[in-house]
Amino acid sequence: MKVLVPVKRVIDYNVKARVKADGSGVDLANVKMSMNPFDEIAVEEAIRLKEKGVADEVVVVSVGVKQAAETLRTALAMGADRAILVVAADDVHQDIEPLAVAKILKAVVDQEQPRLVIAGKQAIDNDMNATGQMLAALLGWGQAAFASKVEIDGDSAKVTREVDGGLQTISVALPAIVTADLRLNEPRYASLPNIMKAKKKPLEERTAADYGVDVAPRLEVVSTREPEGRQAGIKVGSVDELVGKLKEAGVI
């Protein structure tokens, strides 16, 4: 079984995003970029399926700027077999929307014919939480979003999902899309020898135009601003003082 994993290059999880002074967006110039954390979990899950003998090939794909090749190398160093880079933007500030990404991924899926796509549930830059579900729609496949456990069982996958109030387990017919939530696994770090080996693994480069997909945004970003600030309050010296303040504020 072939597993396809889309990965996105995003601002590093530990970097605080800063809005540009002219309100045109978030400043990404000279900012540390990394693989989207949920995509790392997706890559890890695919590699584990291969290690269990359930999957025989893990293909990673990224849609974005040329520099996303680095992100794909990280996935290859973790253990993916080969990579496809679809160059769709020439400026790091140009975010390709989930709908356009899903259309490109659909074309990649049509060529590669994976039985399973595992995506991260959400990118931590645009916080859209949409690409996996949109890809499932375009392919006419079933979807199991927000997975905390995945078991492949013949022609279907049994997936436990994180939902409001607890967990839901569903069975989804293969081929299918799974999106990875936080507790699915803990991604491995790539070892130095594997980082070296990853440099020799195949990485194909294509463009959005190769797939005939228009990546023009449907959502025009009119402006980007800082959120309303919140003032620091006061420090209290004791539990009694805290109780007094909360009573004064009328919240207890």
Partner: peptide, 23 residues
């Protein structure tokens, strides 16, 4: 924006060839 809606609405949007506007 519940977990259920985040599961369903992007699928709806893609079926309508629209970009979902989340949150």
């Amino acid at each position: 924006s519940t977990t259920d809606a985040k599961n369903v609405m992007p699928r709806v949007a893609a079926l309508l060839d629209a970009m979902v506007i989340p949150d």
